[in-house]
Design a protein around this nucleic acid. Sequence first.
RNA 1: UGGGGGAUCGUCUAGCGGUAGGACGCCGGUCUUUGGAGCCGGCUACCUAGGUUCGAUUCCUAGUCCCCCAGCCA
Length: 566
Amino acid sequence: MTTPAPLSPSDFIRDIVAADRKAGKYGGRVVTRFPPEPNGHLHIGHAKSICLNFGIANENPGGICHLRFDDTNPTTEDPEFVQAIQEDLRWLGFDWHGNMFYASDYFEQLYSFAITLIKKGKAYVDSLTADHMREHRGTLTEPGRNSPYRTRAVEDNLDLFQRMRAGEFPDGAHVLRAKIDMASPNINLRDPVLYRIRHATHYRTGTAWCIYPAYDFAHPLSDAIEGITHSICTLEFEDHRPLYDWVVAEADAPHRPQQIEFARLNLTFTVMSKRKLLELVEKKLVAGWDDPRLPTIKGLRRRGVTPEAIRAFCEHIGVAKRDAIVEMQLLEHFIREDLNKRSPRVMAILKPLKIVIDNYPEGKVEELDAVNNPEDPSAGTRKVPFSRTLYIEQDDFREDPPKQFYRLAPGREVRLRYAYIIKCVSATKDPDSGRVTELHCTYDPETKSGSSQDRRKVKATIHWVAASHAADAEVRLYNPLLITDPAKIPADHDWTLYINPQSLERLTGCLVEPRLRAAQPGSRFQFERQGYFCVDPDSSAQALVFNRTVSLKDAWAKIEKAQQAR
RNA sequence: UGGGGGAUCGUCUAGCGGUAGGACGCCGGUCUUUGGAGCCGGCUACCUAGGUUCGAUUCCUAGUCCCCCAGCCA
């Protein structure tokens, strides 16, 4: 029932993989990898990469996808993230089948590869300061200049590199560099740094090392060590590919993986960079990594988004090489599509307006039958209490109804969902503010929902809750995090100024169906006519808290907006 | 003005010499005890200019625009 329609995605990467298998490249094996650095939490952009890498592995017989922590920078990494990343991956529904690795496990092998390079005269120890090295690098249009240390003898390089490892030098005193071409038009090939000295404690290797391999060295060789066949990464690494190939070839690696690049995911009205997400969390502009406004996996999860929806989204956005910004509405579409099928319906009043059914007996309570999910008959029905005093949504009444407004207004009739047709007789107003505080209505006993005499039709059906039985709740509404697309923010502006001040709206005094008192954190519902909501972890039986995952599509809002535009 | 990439509906994305398809969105309609969902229909696209060809989004040439690269980050 909740299994999404089987998809057979196709894209240029899968085409390459298929062609390679057909050609017998790598003996027909397919080994991919997802290589997060444990310095932050996963977000939906990672999910795209995860779905791609695990997806390709799953689609090919014998294919596997490794989880590898790319932990080569001791100053930014934390075991907390190693745990969190695994959790998020499992929650998303992916399994690495025990193939979990750490680049830090390869430090010794990586060191040997470096020795190989030095012995071949393909790497040297440079003693230029970082500033001087930058000066020697040249610019985009001018070639770089060789470092005076570039011609050091192999023996000297070997000796120095061993002493770097032994901890004889302070941070920054020396680096190991590849000896490629300082005049290369590709700046990545101008003798890139392979190892740097960092007297720092690594979360896994402790103080065993004080030199750490750089990405351009560690990544290709880690791939080679693991027998990765297709090393899929994002576009910004495209001009690192010649270096990737150089490292694997010159280090005499036992296996040569191929790097393939694709465009990362961008979404409108939110931020996706690790740096910006970290900034939001650190500056406390959001409540934490799991703030439901964030596109992090933890945020989406807390908001009530399902892994199925995320996967369906990732499979539908496709994989290509052009930069793209996907509209948030597309994500919302897949969230609604999934939630529509699985969410029990329930009635909840966000902004209550009291109504009294004058001709309904005082003290009487009827238990009415309500359908739990029209999309899923097996979800059955439930009883909802009905009584003389009810609450409806403030938005469902207009004293002076505009054109096309079918809901309640003085003299107008409307159906109460699963109950009776009522007619608004009068509205009581606060004499000072002029605000409507209470409605008096009458009901037609002949129109009880489901009864045989019930033949009348009215234009609208609204939801309600019985005053005597409703549970009090807090409801958190989420709106776009940014007031614009991230791409439209000028580079010289402080992007945090573009955060939507209304990104979080907390509503208290909301009234929900009594059965919701027993709802467990994480459980999801559709509040009829409003949207999909889930129980927040902050919630308790005494103080219910719901998060709006996504609203239902609202045809009236659209009409009203169009009317106002006129 | 170096190098590497990329340009197809508003947004993603297919197309691989035979005359543009899908999804979201949008606009209508239908249905409806959720103005939800469903169902039906419609809308809008090949960056430009030349060339090759019976025929070009696909090939060639020349442009234009966008993205990435000058960390001892990844």
